[in-house]
C-alpha cells in the first residue's frame, strides 16, 4: 500500500481501524459514502423554504424535528446535473462542525443505498489530475465491485461554501 493512500485513509476516519462503517447513496448516478456515525436520520422529502439570497448550495431550509436546518445540495459542489426529485429521493440529516459549532444539515440524495463497511485496503487518494471534480472536495475513493465510491470531504465543502456564500440579492430598482 502506498503512503499516499495511508494519508487518505487516515483522513477518511480509518484512524487505527481497517474498516469504517458508511452510508452509501446516489447523486446523479454516482455513488457516494458518508461516515455512518455522522448520520442522524434519513427522511423523506419535506416542504422546503427557499432562503432568498442564500445561493444554490444551501438554498433552502427545512423543519427537522422542530429545528430549522439548512438543506444542502452536494451536486452543486460537484457540478453535477440537478434533476427533479424522484420517488427515491431522500434527505440525509448529518451533523458537521461549522465555525466550531456542531450543526445539523440536511443533504439531498437521489437514492439511499445501504449502511456498509468499507475496507481501508480498498481506498485510494483522489488522483490529482484527470478528475472532473475538485480533488480537495474528496477524502478518498474506495473501489468496490468494480466501481468507485466517492467519500466527499464535507468539512472542506461546507467551509468553502460558507466562505463563498453570495450576499443577499439587492433590491431591484425601477
Amino acid at each position: 500500500m502506498s503512503t499516499q493512500s495511508d494519508i487518505a485513509a487516515t483522513a477518511a476516519g480509518w484512524t487505527g481501524a481497517d474498516q469504517v462503517e458508511v452510508l452509501t447513496f446516489e447523486l446523479n448516478g454516482e455513488l457516494f459514502a458518508l461516515h455512518a456515525v455522522a448520520v442522524q436520520e434519513i427522511m423523506d422529502l419535506a416542504p422546503e423554504t427557499v432562503v432568498p439570497g442564500a445561493g444554490d448550495f444551501a438554498g433552502s431550509v427545512i423543519n427537522f424535528r422542530g429545528k430549522v436546518i439548512p438543506l444542502a445540495d452536494l451536486r452543486v459542489a460537484f457540478a453535477l446535473e440537478r434533476g427533479a426529485p424522484t420517488i427515491d429521493s431522500r434527505i440525509v440529516v448529518i451533523e458537521i462542525e461549522l465555525s466550531g459549532e456542531p450543526t445539523l444539515v440536511g443533504l439531498r440524495t437521489d437514492k439511499v443505498h445501504e449502511v456498509t463497511t468499507l475496507a481501508r485496503a480498498d481506498s485510494e487518494a483522489p488522483p490529482s489530475v484527470g478528475m472532473r471534480w475538485r480533488p480537495e472536495f474528496i477524502q478518498c475513493l474506495v473501489k468496490r465491485d468494480g466501481e468507485f465510491i466517492v467519500v466527499p470531504d464535507l468539512q472542506t465543502i461546507f467551509n468553502q461554501q460558507q466562505d463563498a456564500r453570495q450576499p443577499v440579492a439587492s433590491a431591484t430598482r425601477h
Binding site: 442564500a54 444551501a58 431550509v61 436546518i69 439548512p70 465555525s99 450543526t103 461546507f158 460558507q162
Partner: peptide, 8 residues
C-alpha cells in the same frame, strides 16, 4: 438560523 445562513 444555522451558520450557513446566519450571515444573511
Amino acid at each position: 438560523m444555522s451558520k450557513l445562513h446566519s450571515g444573511l
